[in-house]
Design a protein around this nucleic acid. Structure first.
Length: 938
DNA sequence: GATCAAGGCCAT
DNA sequence: ATGGCCTTGATC
């Protein structure tokens, strides 16, 4: 089946509507004839979407020619088509963001395999992902050649029953043996990467790593598994887009053969050994950014027997990727027994299971699969676009269960082969504590629980030191003592053991002795981020948090951290920092020096301990450890009305609450809110110009305006001889990817839960897009000089406006005509997008007149994103928005002291932008902003 | 003004 | 990247 672009009448049907009609036809055929799917995947490779190999290559090589400017503010192309056509609430139109892992996959390409795993590897999570491989086809060819020559002899019978066929990075299909493999593609740029992993003929070939510089070029079985798995995951993305109604993807060939994919991948994984242990995937390994392969210089044994899944005594290897760097975390998990996961624990409600090896299959033929699943599959029209955004935000950061929950919300996608992941399977959501090195949870070592730094930086604080349940209960922390505080202030009946131990040591150490670092026992210099540390650990913690680094441990995550060995394993060092109670929030986002956090973070989490002294002679280390850990996790929580309720406060003080504060997810949410409210370093104050400049600089750094604003391959997009759906897919691909990447680089990304970011993207993408387009036109567009003076020689702004509108309409007319291969009349154009273009143009002119600066633009961008139209603004969002509003105010006042109304003028543009954006949704012509900037060359 | 806990600098 | 030393600035 080939999707050919049928130019539609712009006046009667939007491009999306047209595409959806196509989609319906395809769905109908796919439902009735599964085998036709293969035709789809092969006869129309272009339809594979923007992430096809050819597209990848195209995108990886910026065109020096026409570059459509667009900002990284991205949108979803087909959001409108999905909802409106089905008669859904128009308010929902376009509020979705279609996401595909390829967005991330592009910047974290397979060519990066092997580059990120060395001992002590550190990944700066803020760094831009590496550029795509310049020659993926060559790499693929090489891989295929290797595959052809190095077939192993011992393939599992289990594997032979299934096959994973990757026809393209986008269109992996999972097929049963009976399903014939797709014929080779005729596209030279997109060689048919047919990687038959478990067909009866060959074993998984020892593919080479894509990265020549990789220290370990041999792709391990695990790597191969990862790649296969990614191919499976890729199909999910395809299916999602497919379900969005805009196109049929080859992924639709995935006939829901979930068990095949599961078994194939599981068979590979289950028999792999890395350093003698079986690797396992969790968390961030769920999707594209996290499915990259951790390189390993370890010989991988060929698959053997599949061990029982209910016993897992071997250490776990968690492989994931963030910021383009692979992470491998080793741990020694407890025995895992499959068990159902409470849907509530996911926060999404409908996930059926939590997974450690999350395999997903594209159930793009959901319409016919519904009856076979335990839960009804949603219709394509009910695609949860928010879930899509959520999904992408979770890429690289979410644990398996999060991904599972997200996927569970995605029609056509369903988890299969779920296997409980022990660390995230707690029904109550308590994912356990980070091993504090010495002791957490009443002295019980917690090394078994790995620290997923990706999730940590994504805002998942549930990994932070958690008082064991028994510890919480011992302190009666579940009782409410004040508004919203799930803890008691009165009962400390059972806290006596650790607290007394602490106090005993405290009293015994009154003598003057040098403080020792709670992390490495080096000489401490004072309180740093909540605990007593040395300068080294202080700086280490600061750098880690500031840069959102992701460390790896090549051992088992139990490295001893001493002064002599602290630099041997960053992962374990940071893990100990967290475990000992160092406060992430104490690292200031605005990097404002000076002052104290006592009025902020420590107002909420008053660390109750004294400076730890070295143990006296005879004191056993474990005692010190207990004391330190206890002290570090001991907090006095002030109630909100502490000033007015001395008795309550007294109760709290007297009942000094042994609380790790971040105990379980339900508390974390509230605590985070409290923290944000309490952090005075970034709220309710006027920033100095230095701080303002710094904050704006951070925003600008994560914006990459020039690069992001350009849409590559515009010439290709404007050609009418290629599939229109592919064009739009390509645009949408770029949009979503850039939008998510921008979000994840925001300085306040960690301050908000992923769910909030998801919601923001879902509801604000169009406004961001309009703002970006207008700002880019104003800043980088030609400073047009119109012949617009009136009889008095004065500037005729009205005439200027209309001339600008007309020019923009002409641009659109040309571009659309080119794209559709059919002339578009100006009347049609005016009817469809005239008002919207006028509004966008108006904003652009206003920005141009005031000579909008990038510094202002990035602030406006954050402000508008955090503006809640429905009035349901949360304090979290308000806090951040106020922060950047204040930042913008300071900047404007300092930079333009002679323009007292400049700030007001800028902020007044925001409603206009929202108005234009709403029209953008209604028109469903998301690409208009791109085209408006198409004449601007970078 | 002293203290202290932030961030920054810079030699290693 | 680390860590010792310095500066900064809020709090006492």
């Amino acid at each position: 089946m080939t999707l050919t672009s049928t130019p539609c009448d712009l006046s009667t049907m939007s491009l999306f509507q047209d595409l959806k009609l196509k989609r319906r036809k395809i769905d109908s055929r796919c439902s009735s004839d599964g085998e036709s799917i293969a035709d789809t995947s092969t006869s129309s490779p272009d339809v594979a979407g923007p992430a096809s190999p050819s597209n990848r290559m195209d995108r990886s090589v910026p065109s020096p020619g026409l570059i459509i400017s667009m900002d990284r503010m991205t949108s979803s192309p087909e959001c409108g088509s999905v909802t409106t056509d089905s008669g859904q609430d128009p308010n929902d139109v376009g509020e979705g963001v279609k996401v595909k892992e390829e967005m991330l996959d592009d910047t974290q390409p397979k060519d990066a395999i092997g580059t990120g795993y060395e001992n002590g590897t550190v990944a700066d999570n803020k760094t831009e992902p590496p550029s795509p491989s310049p020659s993926p086809s060559a790499v693929v060819t090489a891989a295929l050649a290797a595959a052809a020559t190095a077939a192993a002899q011992q393939e599992q019978q289990q594997q032979r029953r299934e096959s994973v066929v990757m026809t393209s990075p986008l269109s992996c299909v999972v097929k049963s043996p009976s399903t014939p493999p797709p014929p080779p593609s005729s596209t030279s740029l997109s060689p048919p990467l047919t990687w038959t992993t478990a067909t009866a003929q060959t074993n998984p070939p020892p593919l080479r790593c894509y990265t020549p510089s990789s220290a370990a070029n041999s792709m391990s079985v695990t790597q191969q598994y990862q790649q296969r798995r990614q191919s499976v995951v890729t199909s999910v993305s395809s299916a999602f887009w497919n379900a969005a109604g805009t196109q049929t993807l080859p992924a639709s060939t995935a006939q829901g053969n979930a068990s095949a994919a599961t078994a194939a991948a599981a068979s590979v994984l289950s028999v792999c050994r890395i350093n003698g242990v079986r690797p396992e995937l969790i968390g961030g390994a769920g999707f594209a950014t996290t499915t990259a392969v951790a390189t390993c210089n370890t010989d991988m044994k060929p698959p053997a027997a599949i061990p029982p899944r209910t016993t897992r005594s071997a250490p776990t290897v968690i492989m994931g990727e963030a910021g383009g760097v692979r992470t491998m975390i080793w741990s020694s998990p407890p025995c895992t027994v499959e068990q159902p996961t409470s849907p509530a624990s996911t926060g999404c409600g409908s996930v059926a299971s939590t997974i450690s090896t999350p395999y997903w299959t594209s159930a793009s033929t959901w319409s016919s699969n519904t009856s076979s699943t335990s839960s009804p599959s949603p219709s394509p029209a009910s695609v949860s676009e928010e879930s899509a955004a959520h999904l992408l935000l979770n890429l690289g950061v979410a644990a398996g269960h999060d991904v599972a929950s997200v996927i569970s919300h995605m029609p056509g996608l369903r988890p299969i082969g779920s296997q409980l992941q022990q660390t995230s399977a707690a029904g109550g959501g308590n994912s356990g504590g980070v091993g504090g090195g010495n002791v957490t949870g009443g002295g019980q070592q917690s090394f078994h629980v790995p620290l997923n730094m990706e999730r940590l930086w994504a805002g998942d604080l549930s990994q932070l030191p958690v008082a064991a349940t028994h510890q919480m209960h011992a302190l009666n922390l579940t009782a409410n003592t004040g508004p919203g505080w799930p803890m008691t202030g009165s009962n400390s009946e059972n806290k006596s053991a650790p607290v007394n131990a602490y106090h005993q040591m405290e009293e015994a150490d009154e003598q003057e002795q040098p403080m020792v670092c709670m992390i490495c026992d080096d000489r401490a210099t004072g309180l740093h981020y909540g605990i007593i540390t040395c300068e080294g650990c202080k700086g280490f913690f600061k750098r880690t948090v500031q840069n959102r680094r992701i460390y790896t441990c090549i051992a088992e995550g139990t490295c001893e951290i001493t002064k002599a060995q602290r630099n041997r394993c960053q992962y374990c060092r940071f893990k100990k920092c967290i475990g000992q109670g160092m406060v992430l929030q104490a690292v200031r986002e605005d990097r404002m020096p000076g002052g104290r956090n006592s009025g902020a973070v420590y107002n909420l989490y008053k660390v109750k301990y004294k400076k730890k002294r070295p143990p006296k002679n005879g004191q056993v280390k474990i005692e010190k450890s207990v004391a330190c850990s206890t002290a570090s996790t001991m907090t006095t929580i002030k109630t909100e009305n502490q000033d007015n309720n001395s008795s309550s406060m007294s109760t709290l003080v007297n009942g000094t609450i042994l609380k790790t504060a971040l105990t379980n997810p339900s508390e974390v949410v509230y605590l985070r809110q409290r923290l944000d409210n309490a952090v005075s370093s970034s709220r309710d104050r006027t920033f100095s110009i230095e701080a303002t400049v710094n904050m704006i600089k951070n925003l600008m750094d994560c914006d990459e305006f020039q690069d992001i604003a350009t849409l590559r391959n515009m010439e290709d997009l404007l050609e009418h001889n290629s599939d229109l759906s592919a064009k739009l897919m390509q645009i949408g691909d770029s949009i979503v990817y850039k939008l998510v990447q921008w979000t994840k680089r925001l300085p306040f990304y960690l301050e908000l839960p992923v769910e909030v970011h998801t919601r923001l993207l879902t509801h604000k993408w169009h406004e961001l897009l309009v703002l970006t387009t207008s700002a880019y036109q104003a800043i980088h567009g030609p400073q047009k000089i119109w012949n617009s003076t009136n009889m008095n020689g004065d500037r005729n702004e009205d005439s200027e406006f209309h001339q600008e509108v007309f020019q923009n309409l002409c641009i659109l007319q040309n571009c659309l005509s080119s794209m559709m291969g059919k002339p578009i009349t100006m009347d049609q154009l005016r009817q469809d997008v005239g008002v919207m273009v006028e509004k966008i143009t108006h904003v652009t002119l206003m920005f141009r007149r005031v000579k909008l600066r990038m510094e202002e633009y990035v602030c406006l961008k954050v402000i508008i994103m955090l503006t809640q139209n429905n009035g349901n603004t949360t304090s979290e969002l308000e806090t951040i928005q106020e922060r950047y509003t204040s930042c913008l105010k300071t900047y404007v006042e300092h930079t333009f002291p002679m323009q007292p109304n400049r700030l007001q003028d800028l902020l007044q543009r925001l409603p206009e932008i929202q108005s234009a954006a709403s029209l953008l949704l209604e028109s469903k012509m998301f690409y208009v902003p791109f085209l408006l900037n198409s004449t601007i060359r970078s």
